[in-house]
Computed example of a mutant assay.
Amino acid sequence: MISVSPSLISPNIPTHSQSSNKPVKLGIMASGSGSNFEAVAQAIENGQLNAEIKVLIYNNPDAYAAVRADKRNIAAVLINHRDYKHREELDKQIVQTLCQHDVEWVIMAGWMRLVTQELIDAFPQKIINIHPSLLPSFKGVKAIEQAIKAQVKITGCTVHLVSLEMDSGKILMQAAVAVLPDDTPDTLHTRIQIQEHRILPAAIALAVNSEQ
Rank of each mutant, 00 (worst) to 15 (best):
Gln146Ser: 08
Leu49Gln: 06
Arg113Cys: 06
Asn50Pro: 04
Arg68Tyr: 02
Lys54Ser: 10
Gly47Glu: 10
Asn80Tyr: 04
Asp70Trp: 01
Ile94His: 02
Ser137Cys: 14
Gln146Leu: 10
Ile144Lys: 10
Asn80Cys: 11
Ile127Ser: 00
Ala109His: 08
His101Trp: 05
Gly27Val: 08
Glu104Ile: 04
Glu145Gly: 06
Ile120Tyr: 04
Val67Glu: 11
Gly47His: 10
Ser31His: 01
Thr155Asp: 13
Leu98Gly: 05
Ser163Phe: 10
Asn80His: 08
Gly34Cys: 05
Ala150Asn: 14
Phe37Trp: 08
Lys126Trp: 09
Asn50Ala: 13
Gly34Phe: 02
Ile94Trp: 05
Ile74Leu: 05
Arg113Thr: 00
Val103Glu: 05
Leu26Phe: 10
Gln117His: 05
Gln146Glu: 06
Phe123Cys: 01
Gln48Met: 15
Arg87Gln: 12
Leu164Val: 13
Ala63Tyr: 01
Ile57Phe: 02
Lys85Glu: 13
Gly110Lys: 03
Asp62Glu: 09
Asp83Gly: 04
Lys25Gln: 10
Glu118Asp: 13
Leu119Thr: 01
Ile53Thr: 06
Asn46Trp: 07
His160Gln: 00
Ile144Ala: 07
Ala69Leu: 01
Asp121Phe: 06
Asn50Met: 14
Phe138Val: 06
Ala75Met: 01
Asn59Ile: 11
Gln48Ser: 15
Leu98Lys: 00
Ile148Asp: 11
Ala122Thr: 09
Trp105Asn: 00
Asn73Asp: 12
His86Phe: 11
Met112Tyr: 05
Val95Leu: 07
Phe123His: 00
Asp83His: 10
Ser163Thr: 15
Val77Gly: 00
Lys71Thr: 03
